[in-house]
Amino acid sequence: MAEFFIRSLDASTIFTIAALGELIGQRSGILNVGIEGVMLFGATLGFITAKTTGSYLLGFLVGIAVGGLIGLLHGIFSITLGGDQVVSGMGIWILGFGLTTYIGSPYTGPLGMERIPTILGLSPFFFVAIGLTVIIWFILSRTSLGLRIRSVGENPEVAEVSGISVAKTRYLCVVGGGMLMGFAGAIYSLDYNPVWNYNFLLGRGFIALALVFFSMWNPFILLGGSILFGTLWQLSLNPQLFLPGLMSRYIWRTVPFAITLGALLLMSTKWFRTKWGAATPEALGQPYVKD
């Protein structure tokens, strides 16, 4: 049982870090539905680097850098060119799926390196995820930069007349967010399950995307949600543990999405909006074009 919870927390680590990356971008108004693709890139190139050089550090650095580059690409599409963010994001996912399968297939199989040591039985990245949650919460709610990010995501026009560069702020967020997504991918392929196979993420990126909506764009709710989603994911891998026969792994895998739908439904009720205001960044998904 303890093993089950440790694995759940390890799974939630990946959700947390990837979703934090998505959250920063969304708070600045940029939606990246291609998070799965960014993670695949980071995971695959990080895996190949580590396998060929034998260095975990290089593997992680490459994973992070590649994530940042893909984030930059998404930024060019959605910020500079003012394109449709969903289209660009879907493109990144499809590109990521196809290209990583092509690049990675010669490396199919285990990483073959000594495992990264654990702390109290947990992956050290679990603690990194908690640290990142606190840091990102602090930046968003307590710093001038955070106020700028939130303002750009709510109403870029107002931010601009207040002297804030919308483009710069958004680039910072999509690149930074992409780095976190790439990092999360690399954690998967180097630590959580260091075996390369095509499409090995099995939709974890989409769960992280759902998690951001579930969290109502709050890093702490995101952390709690990712532990819940991590547990559900782990149940999907071991469906015999709970309600066997009734719940297959595929049904377990849909539960996070069902919960997210419920949360979105709650957020869209009149009751919620009159009590808490709108949780969604108002300019989310909308290109900002100066006139």
Binding site: E154, N155, E157, V158, A278
Partner: peptide, 16 residues
Amino acid sequence: RKLIPAHSVIENIILG
């Protein structure tokens, strides 16, 4: 109004 509805009054005032 060039204000951000989701933010507090003071946050709107110090923005930028």
